[in-house]
């Protein structure tokens, strides 16, 4: 099975440039890899105001538990929230930080 090469920071840059895709072949593999992690504790996006505000959260592991919203990760741009989710999942999958770039429209207010 495909595993992400943590040294391929060029993939992070490619994602940052165009989070909505379509992606190049290697990045498409990496994105699918990041989308196939376990459901529990998956980093996700929560729309808190339609078309205006998105927070990054984390799926709980059990029925009935609330979705956890991560402090400070609220965005007024969907693409910025997607970049953050990509970055968090990259770190979870590879163990390495993936400092994102180009988070235009983001603002660091608490949810």
């Amino acid at each position: 099975m495909y595993e992400i090469d943590p040294s391929r920071t060029d993939l992070i840059e490619e994602f940052d440039r165009n989070p909505g895709g379509p992606h190049g072949a290697e990045l498409a593999l990496a994105v699918n890899r990041l989308r196939l992690g376990p459901m529990g504790e998956r980093f996700i996006i929560v729309c808190t105001r339609r078309g205006r505000e998105w927070a990054v959260g984390r799926m709980p592991t059990a029925r009935g538990q609330p979705v956890e919203l991560l402090e400070g990760l609220v965005f007024d741009d969907y693409a910025a929230a997607a970049r953050e989710v990509f970055r968090l999942r990259w770190r979870a999958a590879t163990g390495r930080d993936a400092a994102s770039r180009g988070r235009s429209g983001s603002r660091g207010t608490a949810p």
Binding site: R35, R42, M59, P66
Partner: peptide
């Protein structure tokens, strides 16, 4: 990427 709205988050709880 999983994107929930208010209703989805409510259903989870």
């Amino acid at each position: 990427w999983t994107t929930l709205d208010k209703g989805d988050a409510f259903l989870q709880e």
